[in-house]
């Protein structure tokens, strides 16, 4: 009986810990339009996805800081990132950035992902672009 009791208790604690960790580390995806509508959390990391706006990439001449805008064709959001960008990062390419909004509304990314295939668009980004185009009154 004692063993079973201890076992149940142990599993209960484990489940509680797991669910707590799970809840803390879930990351939601938002498009630039959703961020503009204020739906994205201000105090917690999330994923922002869209197309890198052509001509928006600016590099700091001193270090590896880079500034660019992502768009879903309805709204834009400025992103800053310091570090090495993935091989397939380029203007006009769909990307996903992980990070947080700063008080000025700039998205400070800790990681930028571009998938390892020329034709591949992350599915969330594809959906966001489609919604954004529809919103902007363009033909999807």
């Amino acid at each position: 009986m004692l063993v079973i009791g201890l076992g149940v208790l142990g599993i209960g604690v484990a489940v509680a810990l797991i669910l707590a960790a799970f809840n803390q580390n879930l990351m939601y995806f938002y498009s630039p339009s959703e961020v503009a509508r204020g739906e994205a959390p201000g105090n917690r990391a999330f994923r922002l996805g869209g197309m890198v706006v052509k001509g928006s990439v600016q590099r700091d001449p001193q270090d590896l800081t880079v500034r660019f805008a992502v768009t879903d064709f309805a709204q834009q959001r400025t992103v800053t990132y310091k570090g090495i960008l993935p091989d397939l990062f380029r203007e006009g390419q769909g990307i996903v950035a992980i990070g947080q909004l700063d008080p000025g509304g700039v998205f400070v990314a800790s990681e930028v992902l571009a998938k390892h295939d020329e034709n591949y668009m992350p599915p969330e980004v594809a959906q966001a672009l489609k919604d954004g185009k529809a919103q902007a009154g363009m033909k999807p």
Partner: peptide, 18 residues
């Protein structure tokens, strides 16, 4: 029901204690 991702922090947080 929404697009989420579960990153390395979750796995590290639960895996080491197990």
């Amino acid at each position: 029901l929404g697009k989420i991702s579960v990153g390395p922090p979750y796995f590290n947080a639960v895996f080491v204690p197990l």
